[in-house]
Design a protein around this nucleic acid. Structure first.
Lengths: 261, 261
DNA sequence: CTTGCCCACTCGTCTATACGAGTATGCGTG
DNA sequence: CACGCATACTCGTATAGACGAGTGGGCAAG
């Protein structure tokens, strides 16, 4: 094993940079340079206390900086580890193309199978409810909606939580109101019901998760979420669905193709 | 002034939730309910120490949670404040349409003026350099590129840092290599040079900022960045430009329109 | 050999204290 | 009245110590 001093250097007492920041800097640089690899354990708090000659709180302070940056994560009783970058899921802008609606399985399942990971969907909830102000506005002043909520997992890890909202006059009593909407998903059903889809609008934000999002997505410290709100419009120009999606940002890359008209 | 106990309640010693988390929860809830409004000062550390009967470090710990969530920010010598949500800039998917290239001013300037904010561009740098591995791949194995870097500010606040990379055989010696690329920007120049633009590809990620990004974008704690990589393709199918953009996530909403082909 | 316990090591939580540095306010001096 | 300084209040940094709780390995008993 390589000794600590050979990796981590010492402190600069003349610097006006706070000690805990200097320590965080050195650890960050060591990680960036690959001296500590993904999933590898960093020196324990006690070892760093020893190495730098500082108090334990100062070391913990350094770790908390790196946690906030999403670089490391602590495991109680085990140690602090370099956070591995999980495999990312790419969402292409043609993911709602009709040709992808042929198969019986949902886009999420098909795509994950192809990538060799094990996909799951849980927390299914389908019910009628009062529309929030925002959803109501997007759907054109509807009062109540059909809400479909579900959580997506890859290899057991939750990566996305999505809620779809549809006007009752469209969805009530149809297969869309069933837990399993059938092959091609609700978009296929909407088209069968005469709502030929014309285009989608997507709004994308990024922010830190709320405590409840941390819980349902089992997010590590320092992982933001991507908040995507998609509205589907039919050929008549009517908004027929709003899908509100919160994704673990470290699990996704969104990809769009834009014409240069 | 409303007294603290009427806003903040007490601790539950029987709960297994850590004290500093309970305090953070109460503060978060008070903020969510609007008991503390945007920009308003929270009770000082000393006041909370008094109110809860805990040590100062415990209170600071609570504040650090809320900071990580991007809910509050501390100002040395002043206090801890509810972080105001800055006005957001919406980026529509038609922002590169030819019709927007008519005017002399850049898209950023025009749009910000229209929104009533004061736009600035600084840190201009235009130079030839070695292409990074990633840029080289995206541009089709070029070794050296023309790099154009600039930082965008709204009302003095930095919101975006962008770097454009172009193959030398296209850009060298043209107005694209000048600090001011002229009306319509480099896309207008590219088309004049015979590279009629066909489409763009955009890749979007969200993550916590690196320390250098915190510096150049003057990011508050708990603010992620949106990392957007756009590649422009001409009618011949060649990648003629890659633009690497890092945006303060709290200042942007991206918006895309997708056909439902 | 297997089981179970103990112990060493890890991070988590919390207290108490000290000093430094930035900010604002009011008061006294000129 | 204007200026400057003292002062009180704010958060920032750091120390030293205590106890709790999760993990894993070694050792002893069965």
């Amino acid at each position: 094993m390589t000794s600590l001093p050979s990796i981590l250097g010492g402190l600069d007492p003349t610097s006006d940079r706070a000690v805990f920041r200097q320590i965080a800097d050195q650890l960050r640089e060591a990680i960036d340079r690959g001296r500590f690899k993904e999933g590898e354990k960093l020196p324990s708090e006690a070892e760093l206390v020893e190495h730098y000659g500082v108090s334990r709180m100062t070391v913990r302070n350094s770790f908390s900086i790196l946690q906030g940056e999403g670089l490391v994560h602590a495991e109680h009783g085990k140690g602090v580890f370099v956070r591995p970058r999980p495999p990312v899921r790419r969402l292409a802008s043609d993911r709602f193309a009709r040709r992808h609606r042929e198969q019986g399985k949902s886009a999420f399942i098909v795509e994950a199978d192809a990538a060799g990971s094990h996909p799951t969907v849980d927390s299914l909830e389908v019910k009628e409810e009062k529309a929030s102000q925002d959803i109501s506005t997007r759907l054109g002043s509807v009062r109540r909606v059909l809400a479909r909520r579900r959580r997506y997992l890859l290899d057991g890890r939750p990566v996305e939580f999505a809620a779809s909202y549809l006007p009752l006059d469209i969805a009530r009593g149809t297969q869309i109101a069933e837990p399993n909407p059938g092959p091609g998903g609700i978009y296929a059903r909407l088209e069968e019901l005469g709502h030929r889809l014309d285009h989608f609008e997507e709004e994308i934000r990024a922010r830190m998760p709320s405590p409840s999002e941390v819980k349902t997505l089992q997010l590590a410290a320092g992982v933001p979420v991507i908040h995507l709100i998609r509205t589907a419009f039919d050929a008549a120009g009517r908004a027929v669905e709003v899908c509100d999606t919160v994704m673990a940002a470290d699990a996704y890359v969104l990809s769009y193709q834009l014409p240069a008209t």
